[in-house]
Design a protein around this nucleic acid. Structure first.
Lengths: 149, 149
DNA sequence: GGGAGATCGTTAGCTTGGCTAACGATATCT
DNA sequence: AGATATCGTTAGCCAAGCTAACGATCTCCC
């Protein structure tokens, strides 16, 4: 099947593009003093409202011990707060502080600023195409996530 | 400008999509016993022919010490070989072994297999759209790469 | 009510991958 | 020949991923 060969080449390119994109974006994120995984987790907390640590770990597709450390780092920087649950005391809820909100939007602005110069040369039509591509990737990821290895 | 707001949201989504995509793909790559950075470097060596360590580091946008370790790992697994340069003895050329070629295409097959089930439900048209999106991302990365922070 | 088992977050300890600084070996330029 | 530049490595730091093991808590069932 021709579709298979296309998929093969496409998978490689997608993989490579994602790697190199993240390497570029990481540079900007470094400027905020917050690493990419932390920023990503913070983003989930900010937009997804307060979550338990376990929920956050699942959302970020990471094991609980990893999330414990990420949250500890964020907490040490004053970007999130841990809050105990009175009804089920095993749970810890994570919520963003005002500083967390601020840092997130600052980082976002920085990233956009960087992208802006590149996007400035993109036609509106290309923007739409890119948006479509991003949507497709999200769908792909979602459809992969269910399946076991 | 409206374009700016679009870019902002798009940047976020692109960022997030890339992160989650890589997390998924990494699972497959783990099955080959070769980590993503090593696989990426190996891919460059396989397709780009023998390179010096410095060239490889630049290609992967990583500092030389990091590449030294990645290459050392690959070499220990018998996937690449170091070869001295007789004319300029400071240089070390990196070339893929037959095993390196084999492992790379096996990993690629694995990745494709995973993607295949997701892609199987994608229409040909969507494939084309995705391909276009990937191309745009590559262009974006390329245009960002030049600029300093 | 009370014990068995499940669940949640943490701790401990390992590996990898990123960095900078410093160094030895080699080339190159004056 | 000697100063300078370049290349790769070593040493040492930190973040982020994992598994295993644990304490605290909750739930379920007798």
């Amino acid at each position: 099947m021709t579709k298979g060969k296309d998929a093969e080449a496409l998978a490689d390119q997608l993989h490579s593009a994602a790697i190199h994109l993240l390497r570029q974006l990481r540079r900007e994120d470094d400027a905020s003093g917050v690493s990419a995984p932390r920023l990503s987790a913070l983003s989930v907390v900010v937009f997804g409202g307060p979550l338990t640590l376990g929920e956050l770990a699942r959302a970020e597709q990471v094991k609980p011990p990893t999330m414990t450390r990420i949250v500890t780092g964020l907490e040490k920087d004053g970007l999130v707060r841990r809050k105990g649950d009175t009804r089920d005391r095993r749970l810890t809820h994570i919520e963003a502080t005002p500083k967390g909100h601020k840092v997130l939007s600052a980082g976002r602005a920085r990233r956009v600023e960087k992208l802006a110069s590149a996007v400035g040369q993109m036609k509106t039509r290309e923007l739409a195409e890119l948006r479509r591509g991003v949507q497709l990737v999200r769908d792909l990821v979602a459809s992969m996530r269910g399946k076991p290895a």
